[in-house]
């Protein structure tokens, strides 16, 4: 290699990730599903599928449908519950040497506190992501659309753990900056944005909703401009790292988010299309930095703001 390797490391609170490319919760399972095709150890972090206190069976099928340049999903937070994830999934994933971020989904503040406590105690997770923005379960977005509830939730979890806290924001709000400021003021070390956009598709032949849950979350390239706009707006009002996500399929897409103000990116729908999307985007970032004389990726974070 002729050029020096650029510094791609990213700091989130007390956590330093080796590079800014992580997986988006719900799109990469527990990492293990991809282990025989993707070199997990190269990823900046694996954000695991959302964990709830008790097991959840999920929504009735169909749970996925393709739409123009995107897809709707309504999985319904299916997961075996925090205890089973901690006992059966995390030790194996930890063996790959990749930082693990647990995504937590609760129905009330006490749920989030309990989940944070369990994952902090297990010793395998590097950070916690508070999912206050799931559109596919009743009450899943309730916290994420109200600044006061966001602040109460983040503050309550902040009080019981020193692990870096990331709050995952919903785009299904009038002003995302209000929620962002509330989360950061209450102690969130970083923001992850965006979760899916609430959407719907109808089977005109059957004259019924295509998804078993009727509505679902829209993801993929179709939502990227919305996501880039959210990152752009929030970058101006907070001083914590932003993890950008929403339809990132290639390195140019990742660079868009970084230039809008994201310090890291999360790859979601692209994992379904190309299981190697994350590592290919990482390679692309290295190439971009080397070709453009960038020694530290932080040089271009938010650069589009001028």
């Amino acid at each position: 290699m002729s050029e020096a390797c650029p510094d791609l490391s990213v700091r989130i609170g007390s956590l330093v990730l080796p590079n800014p490319v992580m997986t988006a919760s719900g799109t990469f399972g527990y990492g293990l599903e991809y282990a025989d095709i993707c070199d997990l150890s190269r990823l900046g972090a694996v954000v695991i599928k959302a964990a709830t206190v008790a097991p959840r069976v999920g929504n009735r099928p169909p749970r996925i449908v393709e739409t123009a340049a995107g897809m709707l999903n309504a999985i319904g937070l299916q997961n075996p519950g925090a205890d089973a994830i901690i006992a059966e999934k995390l030790p194996e994933l930890a063996g790959f040497g990749v930082p693990i971020i647990a995504n937590l989904a609760g129905e009330c503040v006490d749920d989030y506190v309990l989940l944070a406590d369990k994952f902090a105690a297990c010793g395998h997770v590097a950070a916690l992501e508070l999912n206050i923005s799931c559109p596919n379960v009743e009450g899943g977005m309730a916290f994420g659309v109200c600044p006061e509830m966001t602040a109460e939730l983040v503050g309550s979890v902040r009080a019981i753990t020193d692990l870096p806290l990331i709050t995952k924001l919903s785009p299904n709000v009038t002003d995302i900056t209000e929620i962002a400021v509330a989360a950061v003021t209450a102690g969130s070390d970083a923001l992850s944005m965006i979760n899916t956009l609430l959407g719907m598709s109808i089977d005109v032949r059957r004259r019924r909703p295509l998804l078993g849950n009727a509505t679902g979350g829209l993801s993929g390239p179709a939502i990227r401009p919305v996501a880039v706009r959210c990152v752009w707006q929030v970058y101006d009002v907070v001083d914590v790292p932003i993890i950008g996500s929403g339809g990132i399929m290639c390195v140019e897409d990742a660079l868009e988010f970084i230039m809008a103000g994201a310090s890291a990116v999360a790859i979601g729908t692209a994992n379904f299309v190309n299981p190697l999307a994350g590592t290919e985007i990482l390679d692309g970032l290295v190439d971009y930095c080397q070709s453009n004389g960038i020694k530290d990726i932080s040089e271009i974070v938010g650069v589009a703001h001028g």
Binding site: Y34, I37, P61, I64, F272, P275
Partner: peptide
């Protein structure tokens, strides 16, 4: 067959009902 996402067991999109509950 079912509408499918990842194909490798990660996304839980291609669920069908299991005898005794769950998917």
């Amino acid at each position: 067959e079912q509408r499918m996402g990842c194909g490798v067991g990660a996304c839980l999109s291609c669920a069908i009902g299991a005898a005794g509950g769950g998917y």
